[in-house]
Design a protein around this nucleic acid. Structure first.
Length: 799
RNA sequence: GGGCGGAUGGCGAAAUUGGCAGACGCGAUAGCCUUAGGAGCUAUUGGGGCAACCCUUGGAGGUUCAAAUCCUCUUCCGCCCACCA
């Protein structure tokens, strides 16, 4: 007979809902715990990744509740985005209708899992009372110069027909549809995240409870590098070209300089020269190339000579100025000094185009081959040679000295460059937050007044899939009066990138109904920061970086008094099937709903936690799920056979288990917590237990299998919810064993074991050990050289 | 090329952080119970050997009384970044 999970789960889900069991309210007397899992995009069905993410969170939340914390555990939907538009085209529905339908379905599925969400705090980013505050935040940023419009070459996805942020381009392809990204010149809205680059980098050191690899990824993405901007004056001109280098110690080896094809000086330089035509064609070709082609590491480095020369300011040497595809306009100054002997890229280019080379650093204890014989650049450290007054110095020292010397002479400047670029937020899509500005032929860009927010998204727009903003074609939306001069004007028709929406939703959860501002400062003061955030590693850069940026912005606005939003971060591993990520295209999806039907939500939760630690990948195995189900049934049967009084031995095991499980839960080690709960269960199964012991087993199981445990709790005669029972405490005295098994090793190998009193003194121990018959056979009459004692664990005898 | 992780039975994984390797579970084998079992119970289950024992944490060295754990080298795998000057 199986326990009736279908009935039990339904019963308790209803009870929790009717009792508002998970409603969170500010209570200054109690310690709060803000638990957050990354909210889902409402695609209609939850998948195993969601189940895993939210199960991990739910156990943490229920455990904290049992420990007495005032837990806030909200859920919502990241509801704007492209799939809604695609679905609208396909099914001839409105994106809003499709999205609402999906949200309904997902809510139902999440409720079936028994998650302890405070549904009264639910937010959906596609509702105007949410996105109104996107617009409000945008206007505040606009006022502070943090939102701005500029024309530039942007990433363009030809398949999605929209622009993409740098963060959304993966290997030169669109993060969503994987189409190859093109470059396009467009005027677009940006957020000046670069203004926060130093703080975003420095404050990473505050995030002591984040996984190191997420910190590393963020740090790499921000990409700070220190070096020197050096000014190369153009020969026969008063202009100079700044180049950036992190290796100023190699400056005496700079034999040419290279500009990016997009560099603004290029046009002037080639004008009227014999190479003009060749150069122009080359530039045209490179600019048209997609990023994937251009950045492929195995391609030949191509370039052309401009005909001009520049002067190396350190030795007044004239060097040729080239244009090449391997120099990028977006980074540094868009120009480099090339040192072929000490930079592999320059080396390859110089070989290809027969440019001169000069060695200026040699390894400390060995000579370097002549430049012409090198097969690759020497990029290591060493001693300066051919470097004028800096000869003989260690190159690391020289780096500092040369930089200072150049600064003193005004020919260079110590400088830091970042990889992080401003965040492009304009999207040529319908299903997103309208950017709240108006274009007036007379007044220019006019922000929408705060009192006129929200700028509501029209209920529908024509979707042709042909590109351009669909809102362009909605006359009623576009045609407005200028708020300033009342003349004819038109609205911005681009919408915001959806990452904008998710950059502050954790604050909205503190006061989801608040009407005066994005969030109520008082509520936020109590609930923030998020104590535990849980989500997928795929958000290690984008979402987490943007959220940190927004938080710092709110801090600067005086709206909050902290600078980092998430204290602890857990990134859960993927769910695999047969070693591969579950995905529609691979056809290896396991539907959580059918698993709930067959085994119940509790068994599914238990299996997912038991199969692997939260951070590592989890291999789906239905037999394992069956095992989890059997385990619950085993526990159920114990309840039918309780006895009057438990043995002392069982009580001791219980207290050991309480200690272990408490520690494991606190550290999110649910797999080992379950292992010890199973051990306790096995022990009870063999020796029997009373109500006392069994009740505590059930409490410890309740965060993992909440419906099951509530039902048992009721059967045991309790009237209130098990989640009001309090987390069990252990008695330290019961953990102490009178006698311990002592391992006896000879030369580090286990040879025997004896039982001894736990506080046996060392000399007495020696005596006891040397009497052991098994050991004596190993000693063969030899006398021990050394006698090592690890208290209560082992002795090692060295012969 | 740079950075960060990994590698432990047939499988998922444990190992108090230097102290009995393989807890717990899946699978498998044998038996019991049952009208039946894809339920339950009992026992066995890293490899070799009749056994005493020997071998075993990707590989090779090293440190140590003692190494899955620390150090050096090396192979393979995963993830992130990447013509970033």
């Amino acid at each position: 007979m199986y326990y009736n999970f279908k009935e039990i789960e339904k019963k308790w889900q209803k009870k929790w809902q009717d009792a508002h069991a998970f409603r969170a309210q500010v209570d200054p007397k109690r310690k709060k715990y803000y638990l957050l899992e990354m909210f889902p995009y409402p695609s209609g069905k939850i998948h195993m990744g969601h189940v895993r993410n939210y199960t991990i969170g739910d156990v943490a939340g229920r455990f904290k509740t049992l420990e007495g914390y005032n837990v806030m555990h909200p859920m919502g939907f990241d509801a704007f985005g492209q799939p809604a538009e695609n679905a609208a085209i396909k099914n001839k529905t409105k994106p809003a209708d499709w999205t609402h339908k999906c949200i309904k379905e997902m809510e139902t599925e999440l409720k079936k899992m028994g998650f302890s969400y405070d549904w009264e705090r639910e937010v959906s980013t596609c509702e105007s009372d949410y996105y109104k505050w996107n617009q409000w935040i945008f206007l505040k940023m606009l006022e502070r110069g943090l939102a701005y419009k500029k024309a530039s070459s942007v990433n363009w996805c030809p398949s999605c027909q929209t622009t993409l942020a740098n963060e959304e381009v993966i290997d030169g392809a669109c993060w969503r549809c994987h189409a190859e990204v093109e470059q396009k010149d467009l005027e677009q809205w940006y957020l000046k995240i670069s203004e926060y680059k130093e703080r975003l980098l420095e404050d990473l050191s505050q995030l002591k409870n984040w996984p190191p690899r997420v910190l590393a990824m963020q740090s790499n993405w921000i990409g700070k590098s220190s070096g020197v901007d050096i000014y190369f004056r153009l020969k026969n001109s008063d202009k100079s070209i700044p180049v950036f280098t992190t290796r100023v110690d190699t400056i005496f080896g700079a034999t040419y300089i290279v500009l990016a094809p997009e560099h603004p000086l290029v046009k002037d330089l080639i004008k009227g020269t014999p190479q003009e035509k060749e150069a122009q064609e080359f530039i045209k070709k490179v600019i048209a190339e997609s990023k994937v082609v251009r950045s492929a590491s195995d391609v030949k480095k191509e370039g052309v000579f401009t005909g001009s020369f520049a002067v190396n300011p350190i030795n007044n040497e004239e060097v040729p100025v080239w244009i090449a595809d391997y120099v990028l306009m977006e980074y540094g100054t868009g120009a480099i000094m090339a040192v072929p002997t000490h930079d592999q890229r320059d080396f390859l280019f110089a070989k290809e185009h027969r440019l001169p080379m000069r060695i200026v650093i040699k390894p400390k204890d060995s000579p370097l081959k002549p430049a012409d014989d090198l097969s690759e650049a020497y990029e290591g450290d060493g001693v300066q040679i051919n470097s004028g007054e800096f000869n003989g110095l260690n190159n690391q020292e020289a780096k500092i000295k040369i930089a200072q010397w150049m600064e003193a002479k005004g020919i260079g400047r110590i400088q830091t460059h970042f990889r992080l670029r401003d965040w492009l937020i304009s999207r040529q899509r319908y299903w997103g937050t309208p950017i709240p500005v108006i274009y007036c032929p007379d007044c220019g860009i006019v922000p929408v007044a705060y009192k006129d927010l929200p700028v509501k998204l029209p209920a529908s727009a024509p979707f042709t899939g042909e590109g351009g903003s669909p809102l362009n074609k909605v006359k009623k939306f576009v045609e407005v009066k200028c708020p300033k001069c009342k003349g004819k004007a038109s609205r911005e028709t681009d919408t915001m990138a959806t990452f904008f929406d998710s950059s502050w939703y954790f604050l909205r959860f503190c006061s989801p109904e608040f009407k005066e501002a994005p969030f109520d400062a008082g509520e936020a003061k109590y609930w923030m920061v998020v104590d535990q955030y849980i989500g997928g590693i795929e958000h290690a850069i984008l979402h987490l970086l943007y959220s940190r940026f927004f938080t710092k912005f709110f801090q600067d606005m005086g709206m909050i008094d902290f600078t980092e939003p998430f204290d602890k971060l857990l990134t859960q591993g993927m769910v695999l099937k047969d070693g591969e990520v579950m995905s529609k295209s691979k056809g290896n999806i396991v539907d959580p709903d059918s698993m709930i039907k067959n085994y119940g939500a509790d068994a599914l939760r238990l299996f997912i936690l038991f199969a692997a630690p939260p951070e590592t990948e989890l291999e789906w195995d239905e037999r394992g799920l069956e095992g989890a189900f059997k385990y619950l049934n085993r526990v159920w049967r114990i309840q039918e056979n309780l006895k009057g009084k438990a043995d002392q031995e069982i009580i001791k095991i219980l207290h050991r288990t309480i200690k272990k499980v408490s520690e494991d839960f606190a550290g999110f080690k649910f797999n080992t917590a379950l292992a010890s709960l199973m051990e306790l269960t096995n022990a009870i199964y063999q020796n029997g237990a009373d109500k006392e012991v069994f009740s505590r087993l059930v409490i410890m199981l309740s965060p993992i299998a909440p419906h099951f445990s509530e039902e048992l709790w009721q059967i045991l005669g309790n009237k209130e919810s098990i989640f009001k029972a309090g987390w069990p405490k252990y008695d330290p005295d019961l953990l102490v064993e009178e006698s311990v098994t002592l391992v006896i090793q000879v030369n580090g190998k286990v040879r025997s074991k004896i039982q001894v009193g736990r506080d046996t003194p060392d000399d007495k121990l020696k005596e006891l050990v040397l009497k052991d018959e098994k050991l004596l056979a190993w000693l063969e009459g030899k006398s021990p050289k050394k006698f090592i004692v690890v208290p209560q664990k082992l002795v090692n005898i060295v012969l």
